[in-house]
Amino acid sequence: MLPYVMHRLFTYLIALVWLANGLLCKLLMLVPRHAAIVARILGPAHAGLLTRLIGLGEIGIGLWVISGIKPRWCAWAQIILVLTMNTLEAVLAPDLLLWGRANALFAVLFCGFIYLHYLRPSRLAAA
């Protein structure tokens, strides 16, 4: 019983990261820094719209995580997206990041958590 509860808890925590960032930070624009990062990377002309579209995508990922559909594909998609986004941000907009280039540490930790939760070899053997 406990492994199942822990698995669900970790799944919801991962989904919460995507849902909160997508809805609160980007779609509702409660953290303007996100739109500034998008403007720096993709240009200011449509930064507001693009930020909201990215937010919708992040909400979609959060829902995918909760759905449990193709969890390995979902995990790899998350890891690739997080590492790609954070690399772009660290190179093109480090001054706009909450912790500067140290954001990369949190990105790697989050990716490691996703990996351990969904992709570690002992988990694959049980699936």
Rank of each mutant, 00 (worst) to 15 (best):
R8G: 03
L13Q: 12
A126R: 13
S67R: 03
L98K: 06
T51Y: 00
V31T: 15
G43N: 09
V91L: 14
M6H: 11
A107F: 07
A104I: 14
G112N: 10
E58C: 04
L109H: 07
I54D: 02
A75M: 11
L81P: 00
S67H: 07
L97E: 06
M1P: 09
V31K: 15
A127K: 05
G112F: 10
L16G: 15
L9S: 13
Q78S: 14
W76G: 04
L124T: 10
R8D: 10
L28M: 13
L42I: 04
A93E: 02
R72F: 08
N21P: 01
N86G: 13
A20N: 05
G60R: 00
G22I: 03
E58D: 13
L63T: 00
G55Y: 03
L63R: 04
R8C: 10
G112K: 08
L50D: 02
A39Q: 05
R40W: 04
V91E: 09
P71S: 08
L98R: 08
L97A: 10
A35D: 06
L42G: 04
V31Y: 11
K26P: 02
A77V: 13
A35F: 06
H46G: 05
I69P: 01
L116C: 12
I54A: 10
V91Q: 09
L30V: 07
Q78W: 04
A127R: 09
R101H: 08
L30M: 15
G68R: 12
P121R: 06
G100E: 08
M29I: 05
L105R: 07
S67Y: 06
I114H: 02
L13G: 15
A104V: 15
L16I: 08
T87M: 11
V17S: 05
L16F: 15
V17Y: 11
A104C: 12
N86L: 07
T84P: 01
F113C: 13
C74H: 05
H117A: 05
L9P: 04
G57Q: 07
A90Y: 04
G43P: 10
A20C: 08
V17W: 09
L9E: 07
A102P: 04
L81T: 08
R123A: 12
P71E: 12
L30Q: 14
W73E: 13
L116N: 09
P3E: 12
L105Q: 07
I37H: 02
I61H: 03
W64V: 02
F113T: 13
R40P: 01
L88W: 12
L92E: 12
L109P: 07
W64I: 02
A107H: 06
P3L: 12
L124K: 08
T11C: 10
G60C: 03
T51Q: 00
L19T: 03
M85N: 12
A125D: 08
G100M: 12
V5E: 06
L105V: 15
F106H: 10
L98G: 04
L109K: 07
A102R: 13
A126H: 09
L56P: 00
A75T: 07
C74W: 01
I14W: 02
A39I: 00
R123E: 11
Y115M: 07
A20R: 05
L30K: 13
M85D: 04
H34N: 08
S67C: 07
V65L: 09
L2P: 02
A15R: 10
